[in-house]
């Protein structure tokens, strides 16, 4: 048993310590907005915030997340109000299939926290998520819009 603090709530879960945080979130905590794409920290579909840092949750053991503040896509909106990145995503009609978008949005949230007005080069360096549908054109426009919101 270990305890994870996810979106402000403590969850005591029965999980082996070396289980990837991704699967603990999806299967034990029950939050499936965080997606599995590769399991080897390549694609970014599983990105969550750990103490505010964008983290590929497939590559972090659940036990390493104990005592830290985990934010998933489900915890991004503040009550009914969407986060400005989510709103920009809607305004720019970014998602196609949408499967990669939770991870990309979380990566962008972290980027804007550290770099409130990112340049294109900042975006290129920080956002390395795979999107097989190819939503990068709209995503870039939405990132700039969120930065200016």
């Amino acid at each position: 048993m270990l305890t994870l603090t996810v979106n402000g709530a403590a969850h005591e879960i029965d999980v082996e310590p070396d289980t990837p945080l991704l699967w603990a979130l999806r299967e034990q905590v029950g939050l499936t907005g965080t997606k599995y794409g590769c399991g080897i920290a390549q694609c970014g579909a599983c990105t969550v915030l750990v103490d505010g840092v964008a983290t590929r949750s497939c590559g972090m053991a659940a036990s390493d997340a104990v005592g830290r503040k985990i934010t998933t896509i489900e915890g991004l909106a503040d009550g009914g109000a969407l986060h400005k990145v989510q709103q920009a995503w809607i305004d720019h009609d970014v998602p196609q299939c949408g499967y990669c978008q939770s991870g990309m949005i979380m990566a962008v949230v972290a980027l804007l926290k550290d770099t409130p007005k990112p340049t294109d080069a900042d975006i290129d360096a920080a956002i390395t998520n795979i999107c097989r549908c190819g939503t990068f054109r709209e995503a870039r426009a939405a990132i700039h819009a969120a930065a200016n919101a």
Binding site: Y36, T72, I90, G98, Q101
Partner: peptide, 21 residues
Amino acid sequence: LKRLDTRDKTTGRMTYGLDVK
């Protein structure tokens, strides 16, 4: 027009086959 299925894809609420419970 904007797509009809966008909002749930930005909040993690969209259910894919992987998410069936």
